[in-house]
């Protein structure tokens, strides 16, 4: 089984979001970048399934510039076998999906996994686009993934419940908890990651279809209005008469 795991490079979850003075770009100054937390589920699950089968390979793929390589090495340290970096700025979901689809096709991968969305762009788009480009099913968001031979059984989260879906390879799934417990690299992994292959390839396909014209921060809250605990019922009256939400 050949697994392709797509990872994106995102600001750490505790990052205070700020933009360049013209509001056109995210301000990277002093920000630590991590593997997108949702992608960690995809990566760990692929490694677990490969180990359980006793054969197969896990390739990580990132669309990004050279500054993403520390996180690609981290994915190799966690247990991926090799890596591919498409050397380009990930302009939009469509552009990224084109890169993934091209590599998935060329490498004839059986299972293409990624996180349900990136925590910076929050698109929830790439997996569906890749599936459509390749003409194969996408299961998104998947909270459980098991494999028996070429058949996968997945749990897909829907509003208010879940679906049990069975598909044959090849397929795309976007992952979320509680699929597995994401692994962290150990010392041996970090040592071996240094010599694992990381191939850099140029981008292909058409340009992006969407462009970000500007970023904005949400308006600041007015400040909290405190109600005395002794008089807690007053809150309910304020929610009705002032905030008008009940």
């Amino acid at each position: 089984m050949k697994f392709l795991v797509c990872i994106s490079n995102v600001p750490d979850t505790t990052t205070k979001i700020a933009f360049t003075p013209d509001n056109k770009e995210f301000n990277k100054a002093g920000v630590q970048f991590v593997i997108n937390p949702w992608d960690e589920y995809a990566l760990t699950r692929a490694i677990e399934l490969k180990e359980a089968a006793g054969s197969g390979t896990v390739t990580v793929l990132n669309v990004g510039q050279a500054d993403t390589e520390p996180n690609i090495r981290k994915a190799l340290a966690i247990g991926a076998d090799d890596a591919i970096r498409v050397d380009a700025v990930p302009q939009d979901a469509y552009f990224v999906a084109e890169q993934i689809a091209a590599i998935a096709k060329e490498g004839a991968y059986d299972v293409i996994l990624m996180g349900k969305e990136s925590i910076d762009y929050n698109g929830f788009q790439v997996h569906g686009m890749v599936g459509e480009m390749l003409g194969i099913p996408t299961i998104a968001p998947a909270q459980k993934l098991d494999m028996a031979g070429n058949t996968a059984t997945l749990e897909r989260e829907i509003e208010g419940g879940k679906e049990i879906v069975q598909v044959n390879t090849p397929f795309v799934a976007s992952c979320q908890q509680p699929m597995c417990e994401p692994r962290i690299p150990n010392m041996r992994g970090i040592m071996t990651a240094r010599t694992k292959p990381l191939k850099v390839v140029p981008a292909v396909g058409e340009p992006a279809r969407t462009t970000v014209a500007e970023f904005a921060l949400p308006p600041k809250k007015q400040g909290v209005k405190l109600i005395d605990a002794e008089n807690a019922g007053e809150l309910i009256h304020l929610l009705r008469s002032e905030a008008k939400v009940i």
Binding site: P11, T13, I17, F19, F26, I119, D120, Y121, N122, A208, R209, T210, T211, V212, A213, E214, F215, A216, L217, P218
Partner: peptide, 15 residues
């Protein structure tokens, strides 16, 4: 659209 997990917005031009 919402971006950065609810911490910001992006004005996006659709081509």
């Amino acid at each position: 659209r919402g971006a950065f997990s609810g911490k910001a917005f992006a004005e996006v031009s659709l081509g």
